[in-house]
Design a protein around this nucleic acid. Structure first.
Lengths: 201, 201
DNA sequence: TTGGTTTTATGCGATACGGTACAAAAATAC
DNA sequence: GTATTTTTGTACCGTATCGCATAAAACCAA
């Protein structure tokens, strides 16, 4: 590849040996399994395939790294949510697909991690308010996505799409909690299926 | 007081200088605010008003102390739940009272701690399976209590009381999460009020 | 080649943590 | 009173932790 075709302007000095987004994805697994306080920088650096000073230089301290990971994970999740809600089928079918996909992720072996926001960020909120704020923003964004889905559906406008979204979000968070506490995917899917008609009533 | 009137038979050796249940109550505040991993034995011992060896002798290691606290807290919560559900009024009124009381506790200053099970136990489940098991048992007991309330009500038997209880529990867990992430009590109460008719439909 | 700049890698250093050993204290049993 | 038993308090040990200091490595510019 010729230099002129490269869009990324290379700054002087030694280039990074890693892609920041790939690092966030690898680090996410550790935070998701162990939580913010339970994850050590050694584990995080090992999972990312680099050493602590590199992590530190790229993302700042552990709290900043966690928040960056949380936001990255949240953005990806909302993309997936929007994609399913914009897909084919009735709103009931799409909502059921949202829950099914979420439950598959939440109950993935070996850790049944649930959701990173609900399962790991919430506990830190009193001690690390910035984590709590970021998590609250993400839950709000998730409910906004659901609200768009309901608003674009043919459901009656009472209850309001925002009210349906709060309810649908609440069911999602509860599923995430129960998944992390060991609930079986089949039970969670049965519960979700039973809730879809109620949310869409 | 004469020795004969004392029901508790004193065993030989120096008596304890503390009441175990009172210690669990004091320790609960630290676990609730900081979580299991985030709470240090120094903080826990200081909150309990005793020193680490005494804590250790009475309750075992930190994990056992946390689980004892969690079970104690859960039992107290379920007592309160049963009491409200056995009180006067329609099931709708009683359920609304349950949520209102929970929200008052969940949003108490200064930490807005939410629920200990949802807010602090869930995160530890992958790393400390016994904590996860204890937490799952408590959620199950909470839903059993709700189920008893619905079964004893005059609501139609379809949906089944157990299904109503799962839904009511899910709403409770979601409220606990949002409380810990900073949601205002008024917003949570409005949400809970909007859900009561749906749960009791 | 020489100099400037940024990223790596090793390693350190101070602290905090969980858990326990050990001796003093406070009660009962004889 | 003496012995026994249990709890209490201090002090300690080994380890894990976070964050950084320092120097080598890898790139660009001239």
């Amino acid at each position: 590849m010729r230099t002129g075709t490269e869009l990324t302007k290379r700054s002087p000095g030694r280039p990074r040996g890693f892609n920041p987004e790939e690092v966030l994805e690898k680090v996410r697994g550790v935070f998701l399994a162990k939580g913010f306080t339970g994850a050590s920088l050694d584990e995080l650096a090992a999972a990312a395939g680099l050493n602590r000073p590199s992590l530190y230089a790229a993302f700042g301290d552990k709290e900043q790294l966690y928040i960056a990971t949380l936001r990255f994970y949240g953005a990806k999740s909302i993309e997936g949510l929007d994609a399913i809600l914009a897909g084919p089928g009735t709103i009931q079918q799409r909502l059921a697909r949202v829950y099914s996909a979420a439950i598959d992720v939440y109950t993935a072996p070996p850790h049944r991690p649930g959701c990173m926001i609900v399962g790991t960020a919430a506990v830190e909120s009193p001690t690390y308010p910035r984590i709590g704020e970021a998590a609250a923003e993400l839950l709000s964004a998730i409910e906004k996505s659901l609200e768009r889905g309901f608003a674009a559906s043919d459901l009656p406008k009472k209850p309001a799409p925002a009210a349906r979204a709060r309810m649908a979000g609440a069911i999602m968070y509860a599923i995430a909690i129960r998944a992390r506490l060991g609930a079986k995917a089949a039970d969670l899917k049965a519960f979700a299926s039973s809730m879809v008609p109620t949310i869409c009533a």
